[in-house]
Amino acid sequence: MKRQPLRLAIIEATRILEAAGVASPRADAELLAAHVLGVDRGRLPMIPLVDPPVIEAIGQLVAQRAKRVPLQHLTGWAALGDITVSVGPGVFIPRPETELLLEWGLKLLNGREYPVVVDLCTGSGALALAVAHARPDAVVYAVDIDPTALAWARHNADARAEAGDTPIRLYSGDVGDSTIFAELDGLVDLVLSNPPYVPPGAELSPEVIDYDPAQAVFAPDGGLAVIRQVVATAARLLKPGGGVAIEHDDTHASAAPAIVSARKVLTDVEDHRDLAGRPRFVTARRV
């Protein structure tokens, strides 16, 4: 069988994905090709020719992506910070928008030894595990109410522990429970949360509507219900000087900071934009 140019296969894949309305057709085509070949995306230019079965395998994945199956479901992983986590049906896929929230949290921890960190609504465990990877001295707690998400988080936590990272402490629980992590009241350096925050009825891409679990995406009260619970819990958990960062919908640029500011023990309330320039997360510190 005659070997074929990989470059032409990627060009064709890009054309198909663009026609299907995929937001990043070229990047997705290259990531799928890299996945099939088992190499990093940056190595693709060093592979000019591939065997026909490789072209066929890429084509099969591209056809699935064109149906708007999430890229991460096809590759089986998503990245956050310096780690990757396994994802698939039943768990929310970490997004690049959360990178800046993670960076803010890690910056807050600079100069703090053995910090205590809590990740509320952990989903796949990505935020908690990214913190544990960056700060091996941290004691990291994570909680979610959804058993499917927790199964993914446990799988990812076990994988990161096997890779040498400090294990996280993973719990099943409701962030709206006023007694959750009661033993940590006033002891926590950092609370992070990427909770459900999309207003019901919002128009979203097929990748989100059809594949992300609705309970991890939508929240009542215009998307603010769980954010209110997270703020209440954070205000209770944080030690003086501790910080909280909560992701929110881009329509919450005023509402989310107002909820945080209503807690008198929280100060330095600031809203931040994501990589695309949209309002994305709010931060504050405990008095």
Rank of each mutant, 00 (worst) to 15 (best):
G81T: 09
A284P: 10
D212E: 15
E183P: 07
L31H: 04
V131H: 03
L71Y: 12
V139N: 02
A216K: 07
L204Q: 12
V87N: 02
G81H: 06
T251Y: 00
L44F: 12
L37W: 12
G243L: 08
G186Y: 09
V287K: 10
A27C: 00
G81F: 06
L101Q: 08
Q4A: 13
R65I: 11
T179G: 08
G21W: 11
R112P: 00
I16V: 15
K107N: 14
S124Y: 03
H73Q: 13
T179C: 03
S172M: 09
R95L: 11
P240G: 01
R112W: 04
L127F: 01
I11E: 15
G42W: 07
D212K: 12
D119C: 03
I11N: 11
L204P: 07
L74F: 05
V191Y: 05
A142I: 07
L109H: 01
R7S: 15
P89C: 02
H155Q: 14
N156V: 08
R286Y: 06
P257W: 10
A258R: 12
P206N: 12
P45Y: 10
Q229C: 14
D165G: 04
G277S: 10
D28E: 14
I209L: 15
I10Y: 06
A19L: 13
D249E: 08
A132T: 05
W104Y: 14
R169D: 13
D174W: 10
I168A: 10
L71W: 08
I93W: 01
L187I: 00
R285G: 02
R43C: 04
R278M: 13
R3Y: 13
V260F: 11
T179W: 01
H73T: 06
P147S: 13
L6Y: 11
A256K: 04
Y211R: 04
L187Q: 14
P206C: 13
R26E: 02
Y171H: 15
A216T: 09
I180H: 08
S254R: 09
A57R: 15
F181H: 10
G111D: 06
F218C: 00
L187T: 06
T98V: 06
I259Y: 04
V118L: 06
A33Q: 02
L170C: 02
V131I: 12
V39G: 02
L80V: 05
Y197I: 06
